[in-house]
């Protein structure tokens, strides 16, 4: 019986979605951040998920499919330049650079991430009750 593997799978999903929620939180926090140059402006960060197949001998060919964060990449969308000569961070031409975070995208991402997390939690709960039922086998 391979219940432990299922806890690994659900745990990896929770970890990956937590990283995603972390990036969303940091993007939303910096959505209105201002910088004095284009290079220093905040750019939205996004995690890249990848599937990791566990040992091959069980589950007929491909093993348990856990998920892992392959890395975190920066968005290459253009940052927003605004003419604000009164801003203390403005450069010689009176321009400041706002972050390229799209808050609507980030909110949608946040909902998807928390839904993925909740799915992993309910998988764990259900596997737990299946295992408890199996432990009581033959007692009734």
């Amino acid at each position: 019986m391979s219940f432990n593997r299922i806890y690994d799978i659900a745990g990896s999903a929770m970890r990956a979605q937590t990283v995603r929620l972390d990036t969303v939180a940091s993007n939303l926090a910096n959505a209105d951040a201002v910088a004095g140059s284009e290079g220093a402006a905040y750019r939205a960060i996004k995690p890249v998920f990848q599937t990791v197949y566990q040992r091959v001998e069980d589950a007929g060919g491909l093993g348990a499919a856990t998920v892992d964060v392959a890395g975190v990449v920066q968005s290459n969308r253009n940052v927003e330049r605004r003419y604000e000569p009164d801003n203390p961070l403005a450069d010689g031409n009176g321009n400041v650079f706002y972050s390229n975070v799209n808050t609507v995208d980030e909110m949608a991402d946040m909902m998807a991430a928390s839904r993925g997390f909740e799915t992993a939690v309910s998988v764990m709960n259900r596997i737990g009750s299946m295992q408890q039922g199996l432990l009581r086998l033959g007692q009734s």
Binding site: M1, A10, A65, V123, M130
Partner: peptide, 23 residues
């Protein structure tokens, strides 16, 4: 019973990779 445990492992893998591109 055995088959259902192993199937739940595969389905849990699907659910974990619901946001993985190309899965």
């Amino acid at each position: 019973l055995q088959l259902r445990v192993e199937r739940s492992q595969i389905l849990a893998g699907n659910l974990a990779n619901v946001d993985t591109p190309g899965y």
